[in-house]
């Protein structure tokens, strides 16, 4: 049943798949980002309490969700790489990490810019903020561990193990606002039915979330292509590809 998947373990097929998917991801991301930002910035109504400052939510929440989503995908790829010894999965771990780190940075920076007017401080050593900062260090740790080894086989293994161990941080981030007394406000959309957010704000938020997810996809595909080329640069198919293009 899963046999159709097997050819994609080959680097060349995986590279071609990335190439096929990339334009769809790109168009989807651009459309959603433009709609999401214009809607969020200009058309969504102002919040009754936080006024126009709440518009930061339209990038803060998507980047925070995707910082964790990208980490989960990275950890799944790491498990696949370790259990089934698939080299492409290992490359995917390294391909996701930079864009995941970027999402984390955006979540932290936009959080600071939102915290200043609302809490009166750019940064507090609060459970949510601190665990998100640790997430950034985990991403950077996975990347630097991978690049620290000369032998890429052990490099991949070490990076995968760190990625899997770091998963422990995800529930800590998610539940930090419930487990500890914190400045950070509670969940907005994960409690859908209690409607903590009005549909006129929820829709642009959801569009931005899928836009950011699309962006993570675009960058991951580009970087996965790079990693495959890097790994296979002495193979004939790469040479054919480069001489042709």
């Amino acid at each position: 049943m899963w046999k159709w998947l097997h050819p994609y373990a080959k680097a060349e097929r995986a590279y071609q798949l990335c190439n096929t998917l990339l334009p769809y991801f790109t168009v989807f991301t651009v459309v959603c980002l433009v709609v999401g930002w214009v809607w969020g910035l200009a058309y969504a109504p102002a919040d009754y309490q936080q006024k126009d400052s709440y518009r930061i939510i339209f990038i803060h929440v998507p980047s925070a969700i995707l910082s964790m989503g990208a980490y989960s995908s990275m950890a799944i790829a790491a498990i696949v790489a370790l259990v089934w010894q698939l080299r492409n999965a290992e490359l995917a771990v390294v391909a996701i990490a930079p864009v995941g780190a970027a999402m984390t940075v955006i979540a932290l920076v936009t959080g600071a810019a939102w915290g200043k007017p609302m809490w009166g401080a750019w940064w507090v050593w609060d459970a949510r903020l601190t665990s998100e900062l640790i997430l950034l260090f985990l991403y950077l740790g996975v990347l630097s561990l991978y690049h620290a080894f000369e032998d890429k086989k052990s490099a991949g293994k070490a990076a995968c193990i760190l990625a899997i161990v770091g998963v422990i941080n995800l529930p800590i981030i998610h539940f930090s606002v419930e487990w500890w007394n914190t400045l950070h406000q509670g969940a907005t959309i994960t409690k859908f039915d209690t409607s903590a957010i009005d549909p006129s704000m929820l829709w642009p938020l959801l569009i931005n979330i899928v836009a950011f997810a699309g962006f993570v996809g675009v960058v991951t595909l580009i970087r996965l292509k790079n990693e495959i080329l890097q790994r296979e640069k002495h193979r004939p198919w790469v040479r054919d590809l480069v001489s042709r293009g």
Partner: peptide
């Protein structure tokens, strides 16, 4: 300032 700082850095 805060809104454009966020969207700009993003």
């Amino acid at each position: 300032f805060y809104v454009w700082l966020s969207f700009g850095s993003c």
